[in-house]
């Protein structure tokens, strides 16, 4: 068995990796189904993000506490049952708090169970780390997931309804792109965000390469070679 990095200290990276470097949606491409399905408005996106974060935190905390008790052979089944328990809690909670949100999200609240991100975190992080590390990391991942949902939700609501959180932004003359609220819009907007991040990453890499290749020539030549490409 691999050495357990049980005693690793909590670094800022434990928290931040979920938000940027290992963002579950934009980088790892996990948990796509709710990302696309419920992001037709900011409010839905926020509710879904918070619900997922809650399930992620609670289930990973429990997995982390029980990591020495759960036998290796049946761990996946055990994780799924733990996750399903907390999803049932969230399902009844949202039903009690706001019927409106419950109806808008529909079966996707219950489908949090099969969000690969939560199971993935349980397997990759919570089962090998202390409770404190796990909590910090899960919180980061949850926030990263929520931010990603909000990124999609805001663009789709802005273009599809000309509003943000229900308040009209563009005024009367704006002709809403209904397509953005419909399924294809979800695919297109997510693709656009991925393209943006890929472009950012590539230009950053090029700048780094240019800086490494010609450190004595200063930034000027490096900048020129970027544009020449």
């Amino acid at each position: 068995m691999a050495i357990k990095p049980d005693t690793q200290p909590i670094t800022p990276d434990t928290f931040l990796s979920g938000i940027w470097r290992e963002n579950p949606v934009f980088v790892m491409l996990l948990g796509m189904c709710p990302v696309l399905a419920v992001t037709n408005s900011v409010a839905n996106a926020l509710a879904m993000g918070l619900a997922t974060t809650f399930v992620l935190l609670c289930s990973n905390a429990l997995v982390s506490l029980l990591r020495r008790q759960i036998p290796k052979e049946v761990r996946i089944a055990a994780y799924i049952i733990i996750i399903a328990t907390f999803v049932t809690v969230v399902d009844y909670l949202i039903h009690a708090i706001s019927l409106e949100v419950y109806d808008a999200l529909g079966a996707f609240i219950q489908l949090i169970v099969v969000n690969c991100m939560i199971l993935g975190r349980a397997e990759a992080f919570a089962s090998r780390n202390r409770l404190s590390n796990t909590l910090v990391n899960s919180l980061g991942m949850g926030i990263g997931f929520t931010i990603a949902l909000l990124c999609l939700g805001s663009v789709r609501e802005l273009l599809g309804a000309g509003a943000l959180l229900g308040y009209p932004i563009f005024g009367q003359s704006f002709e809403p792109w209904i397509i953005m609220l419909l399924p294809p819009g979800g695919f297109f907007v997510l693709a656009a965000w991925l393209l943006l991040f890929a472009w950012l990453k590539e230009s950053q890499q090029r700048r780094k390469q240019a800086a490494a290749a010609a450190p004595q020539n200063g930034g000027k030549l490096g900048g020129a070679s970027i544009h020449a490409r």
Binding site: P183, G185, F187, L195
Partner: peptide
Amino acid sequence: SIARGAAMSLMLAGILSL
């Protein structure tokens, strides 16, 4: 090169969905 992989697949899925 930036569109290769997931972004391209998502755009394809969007067109199919359309």
